[in-house]
Design a binder for these strands. Structure first.
Lengths: 243, 243
DNA sequence: CCAAAAGTGTTTTCCATACACCCATGA
DNA sequence: TCATGGGTGTATGGAAAACACTTTTGG
């Protein structure tokens, strides 16, 4: 049952010593590219199975910092906007046998998680700055469009769903700027809101509302290389983007 | 250091075996009485120190059910409206030595929590139905008005603050009816909203807004025994209160 | 009759929505 | 020149806010 030479064995042994049992973190990393909201997913070694990035909390580490560490490792980012959004605490969150069979790991015999309570965090990151990195259990890390996400391992489809609902509900408070590059156009910003909210917005009303907040400054340049009329570039005013 | 005969020792030994380490639940139980928002607090045996009710999660129990169990034990209620609102995961949430000295318990030597991550839940309950009950570590359980809460043990003042912010933010979605008795008056309902929101409301606008939701039915009777004009009694319509 | 709270309607303001035309650009 | 998306103002409707007087009751 247990392959003591499997790298996962060593990993879980370390985790078992240094981390808090029964508890994990799952990260829903949102990015925005080509007018689509994306999440970063990992493909497990030797399989076609995908999951969210996640990890465990060191006994000496705050939960927020654990989430940062875990997500920094997958994105290469130094600074992160993170938001805790839900604790998934059911005793049976998914079919364990089925899942372990899928990921082909000899960990069902290890005295680690009969169950796991997961604290969900979502991150808002700038797509272009992310350098996706796998961990040693996975062999591919890449962005998926929200509307094309496959059936994931564990209950991760559900977690993404809850993360999105939470983001949607709180979109007014959140620093959406983190999802965008330094400069962007108003139509791009509108697509972002539309994708998060899940419905289209009126361009004129959107423009008015955004401008009323007085958070953007228009640059002299316009976006070059578009097939049509070149849109102006904007940037979040510093006081705002520093939030 | 360790008094093996102390009842707390036995308790923590059981907890240590059956419950998840490093993790706890704290409950902010909101009630409403005499036009004031209240929370249920516990006084620790032989001290003047108060804290929120809390407890631990059985290894075999879902987090939501653990919260229900813990709060049912302190309130005697059979049904509860509960809302998970935040995870408090700092490594140092309060001064442990100081706190343990205050509560006068010989648990600092027990191999239990170097730290505790706490999942915060708030409950909305009907004040009059609650029969406050102590646990074996405490000798008094009673309601405190939100604006008269003393300095509490642990970081519980902070937890209440965060719970209140969360309730305030979500007040529109929450089943406020759980905080009220079966029948109540419009001014009472208004006081409740005012207390949660932290500012006063215009009675005429409030009346219009509440009535526009079409959730209340006016009863034939009025509230008796008031020193002034007797207000009508109302009740939430069944379809609404069943939510 | 006086003090205090209950009960109620109208006006105004503001925010959200609906809506259409011209402009710039690349193909 | 045409197709496509960018950029912008005005008018309307509905919700929220401002606002005051009459009614009821106990003392």
């Amino acid at each position: 049952m247990i392959d003591y030479n499997h790298p996962a064995f060593q990993y879980y042994q370390n985790v078992s010593e240094q981390c808090i049992h029964y508890l994990s973190i799952d990260g829903v990393i949102f990015g925005f590219h080509q007018n689509q909201l994306k999440v970063l997913l990992l493909r497990w070694k030797g399989t076609d199975e995908w999951s969210l990035p996640g990890g465990f909390i060191l006994k000496t580490e705050s939960v927020d910092l654990a989430a940062q560490r875990i997500i920094k490792e997958r994105t290469g980012l130094q600074t992160l906007y993170l938001q805790q959004f839900h604790v998934f605490g059911e005793t049976v969150r998914y079919n364990q046998e089925e899942t372990w069979a899928k990921i082909n790991l000899p960990i069902q015999g290890i005295n680690w998680s009969e169950r796991t309570i997961s604290i969900g965090y979502y991150a808002l990151v700038e797509y272009a700055e992310v350098v996706p990195a796998t961990d040693f259990l996975t062999e591919e890390c890449r962005w998926w469009s929200l509307d094309a996400i496959p059936a994931l391992l564990f209950d991760h489809n559900h977690i993404i769903e809850v993360a999105l609902q939470s983001l949607r509900k709180n979109v007014g408070d959140q620093p959406i700027s983190h999802l965008l590059p330094d400069t962007f156009t108003i139509p791009e910003l509108q697509r972002l809101y539309e994708t998060i909210l899940g419905h289209s917005l009126d361009a004129r009303n959107f423009y008015k509302k955004i401008m009323a907040q007085n958070n953007l400054e228009r640059l002299a340049e316009r976006r070059a290389g578009t097939p049509h009329k070149a849109p102006y570039l904007y940037r979040f005013k510093v006081a705002f983007s520093e939030r």
